[in-house]
Amino acid sequence: METLPIITAAALWGCATGVLIPRPAYRLSVPFEEPWRSACPAGHLLTGTGNGWLRRARCATGHAYGPSALSVASVTAAVCALLAAATGARPELVVWLLLTPAAVLLATVDFAAHRLPDVLTLPLTAAVLVLLGVAAVLPGAGGSWTSALLGSLVLAACYFVLFLISKGFGFGDVKLALVLGAVLGWYGWAIVLVGTFAGYLYGIGLILAGRAGRTSRIPFGPFLLAGTLAGVFLGSHAS
């Protein structure tokens, strides 16, 4: 019962931030090297906030574009609530809650366009390391900033090797690994291995089912993020 207020607050945070995701998801879901969308498919400029990033994308005709705000907000709220239930009142919970909306946005864009934009992954790398550095010096922290930093570097190096040998693995996944490695590394090397393997189960399943090969283009990002979430759940209970 002591964690119920924390879980409730986390769910409300997820809902409030989740409703902001559809518009940037639509704008960012474009092929590589194309500019972010500022208009609908018919060429009408997006309305509401001009070419900004808030709320679901709508054009002058009134049509809405991008994922459902209700669906995205529900997913974000659920993830935040689960993180709060697993982590409890530890300093790193604030870090996980701040990262969750960005993670949901990345997953949404990767599903839609098979890309992980640098405008999200690169700032997230700096943010997660700085935030975990702050969390590490606060009382009750359940992880190590040093192992988070090493996890970030090692996982990114491993993903870079995969990028070189597999055409189905994008360089955006390599940059995302800097974030995922830091999150998993916070709880130690065993969690890095478990979380990374969990993220690959989807790709392995597709290959075994004959639906993908070594050169297939697979949106790995959402499943790598899901594997990291599983790693956080396990790591928070083990620490």
Rank of each mutant, 00 (worst) to 15 (best):
T228W: 07
L184C: 15
L20R: 03
L54N: 03
L206W: 02
V174G: 04
T3S: 14
P139R: 09
S239L: 12
L224S: 06
V161E: 05
G231Y: 02
F169Q: 05
V95E: 00
T146W: 09
R115A: 08
V154L: 15
V109D: 01
V79A: 14
A11R: 06
G14N: 08
A198Y: 02
W36F: 10
L153W: 06
S68D: 08
L234Q: 11
R115K: 13
G181A: 10
G213A: 09
W36R: 15
P222G: 11
T47C: 06
L82V: 15
L93N: 00
V183K: 01
T49Y: 13
A136E: 07
L28Q: 10
T125N: 08
L93M: 13
L184M: 15
A11W: 05
G50M: 03
I218G: 01
L70K: 13
G181S: 08
H114Q: 14
G143H: 07
G43R: 14
I207A: 11
A77L: 08
I6Y: 05
Y65M: 05
S239Q: 11
V75A: 15
D110P: 08
I204Q: 06
I6A: 11
I21S: 03
T17W: 09
G203R: 09
Y159I: 06
L234K: 14
A89P: 04
A177M: 05
V154Q: 03
A148Q: 00
L45C: 03
W145K: 05
R27S: 01
A86P: 06
L46G: 01
E92K: 04
L46N: 01
